[in-house]
Design a protein around this nucleic acid. Structure first.
Lengths: 248, 248
DNA sequence: GAGGTCCAACTTGTCATATAAGCTGCTGAC
DNA sequence: GTCAGCAGCTTATATGACAAGTTGGACCTC
C-alpha cells in the first residue's frame, strides 16, 4: 500500500543506455578500446543488439561524463582520463575497485580542506531552525548505532545540513556530489563503517560549537572528526587489501 | 521549432534539445512553471513543435543537471533549486545575471579555500617538467599583458597546471568544472587597469615558492593573489551595479 | 462509509525506419 | 602540387508503433 519504501540495497533496474554505457566505460578503462577511437552509434547498436536510440543515449551519457566527445559528422573520440567527471557517482560505479579506493582517499582529502571551513562559516550564520534539525539528527544517530546503513543516512544529512548553513551553492553542490560518491563507493567496496560510537560524540562536539556560534570551535571539532574518519578509512583499506591478497 | 530561430548573438549553434532545455529552465527560474510539475515529453514536443526524440533528450539534459527527476511511468517533477548542478556551464548560461553574479562570489569563496592548499600540495610533489611549463606560461603572460583574452587563456592554464600538480583527481575535477566561471571572474578582474601587471607579479611569486618547494610560501602567495583578485572583483561589481542603476 | 482491489489512462522506455545535415578524406581537374 | 568537389561516413531530427511502469479513480468488499 505505502510506496516509495525502496530498501537501500534494492537493486535498481537501470535503463538500457546506462547499462551499455557501463559496459563501454569498463572496456575503455581496461584498455580494450584504443584511446581516441570510440564506437559509433551504429557500432554500439549492432554490437549490443539495441536500437539506435539507445546507442545514441549511451553516447550522450558518456559525453555528459566527459568520457567521450560527440559532434555531428565527426567520429566519437575518447577524452583523456584526467578530464573525466570523477564527481559523478555513475562513473564511480563503473570503475575498478582499486581506482575507487584511490578516489575515496582523494575525496577525503577534499573534505578535510572544505568541511572545517564550512563548519566555521555555518557557525557564523546558522539559524535556530537548522540547529533544531541538527539536534534531531544527533538524537536519531545515537539511537541508530546498531544500524550502520540508517546511521549513515542521518550522518550524511547532518553534514549536508551544516554545508547548507554555510550558504554557498557552489560548495554545497560539491559536497552534495561528494555525498553520492561516498555512498556509491561504499556500496562498491561493501565496507562496513566502524567507530559509530565515537562518531556520535564527535558530531555532538560540532553541534555544541555551532550552538555557541563559535567558528574556531566548529572548525576544530570538524577537523578532529574528519581525521578520526580518516584513520578508520585507512584501517578498513588495510583489511581489504589483506582480504584481496588472501583471495589470490 | 525550426533551425534558424536562435537569437542573433548566439555564436555557437546548439542542438535543438539544448535550446529547448534552455527555454524550459528559464521558465522554471522565472516561476512560470509551478514547482513540482514539469511538462511531459508530449507537452514539450507539442509546445515547441519538435519530435518526441528531441523532447526526450531535452528532459535527459534537465535531469543530468538535477533540475528535474525523470522516471518511467512517473510524471516529470522539478527538483529543489538548491540541488541543481551549479557547477555546470550549461545551467549557468541559462541563469539570469544577478544569480550568476552571486555564484561568482560563491565560486571565489571556494577558490580561496582550495587553491592555496592546492598550491601547498603542489609544492611538495611538483616535477621539473611542470615547473618548466609554468615558467613558459609565466613568460607568455608577461608578454601578453596587452591582450587580456589571450592572457586569460594562459592564466587559466597556469592555475590548472598547479592544480594538476597537487595530484588529486577530485580536486582537479572541481577546479576544472569551475573553469568557465574562473575565466569569467578573471576576465572581469583583469579588466581593471593595473590588474594584469600585478597578476603577473603575483604569479611569479607563486612560481618562485614552487621552485623552492616551499608549501607555506606557495600557500601564502596564492592566498595573496586571490585576495587581490577579490578586491578588484568587488570594485568591478560595484561599477557594474552603478552602470545598471544608471541605465534604469 | 472505510479500506482495499483492480483496471484504464497516462507517462516514460525502446524499437524501426527514413531523411537532413555536417565532417573527412579521396579523387580528379588544372 | 594545389584545391575544388564529391562520395561515404557520421550524428541530428522526425514519425509511428509498441512495451512497461505509475497513478488515480471506479468499484467492490466488509
Amino acid at each position: 500500500m505505502q510506496r516509495g519504501q525502496e530498501s537501500p540495497d534494492a537493486v535498481r533496474i537501470r535503463t538500457l543506455p546506462v547499462q551499455v554505457a557501463a559496459h563501454l566505460t569498463r572496456r575503455i578503462v581496461s584498455g580494450d578500446i584504443e584511446d581516441g577511437r570510440a564506437p559509433s552509434e551504429l557500432d554500439i547498436s549492432q554490437e549490443f543488439g539495441v536500437s539506435r536510440v539507445v546507442a545514441r543515449e549511451t553516447l550522450k551519457i558518456l559525453a555528459s561524463l566527459d568520457i567521450v566527445d560527440v559532434a555531428q559528422g565527426r567520429r566519437v573520440v575518447v577524452r583523456p582520463r584526467a578530464e573525466w567527471d570523477y564527481l559523478s557517482p555513475l562513473l564511480i560505479e563503473w570503475l575498478p575497485t582499486e581506482i575507487v579506493g584511490e578516489l575515496l582517499q582523494e575525496l577525503h582529502q577534499m573534505r578535510v580542506l572544505l568541511e572545517p571551513e564550512l563548519a566555521a562559516m555555518a557557525a557564523a550564520s546558522i539559524t535556530e531552525e537548522t540547529l533544531d534539525r541538527l539536534k534531531t539528527e544527533l538524537d536519531r544517530m545515537s539511537a541508530l548505532e546498531a544500524d550502520p546503513d540508517a546511521y549513515l543516512e542521518v550522518d550524511h544529512e547532518f553534514h549536508m545540513e551544516i554545508c547548507r548553513a554555510a550558504d554557498n551553492r557552489i560548495l554545497d553542490r560539491i559536497m552534495y556530489s561528494a555525498r553520492w560518491l561516498g555512498t556509491a563507493s561504499r556500496r562498491i567496496t561493501n565496507e562496513a563503517p566502524a567507530g559509530l560510537c565515537r562518531a556520535t560524540a564527535e558530531h555532538a562536539e560540532i553541534y555544541e560549537a555551532l550552538v555557541a556560534r563559535d567558528p574556531e570551535g566548529a572548525r576544530a571539532a570538524m577537523r578532529r572528526h574528519l581525521s578520526n574518519n580518516y584513520s578508520t578509512l585507512i584501517e578498513e583499506k588495510g583489511k581489504q587489501t589483506k582480504r584481496a591478497a588472501r583471495r589470490r
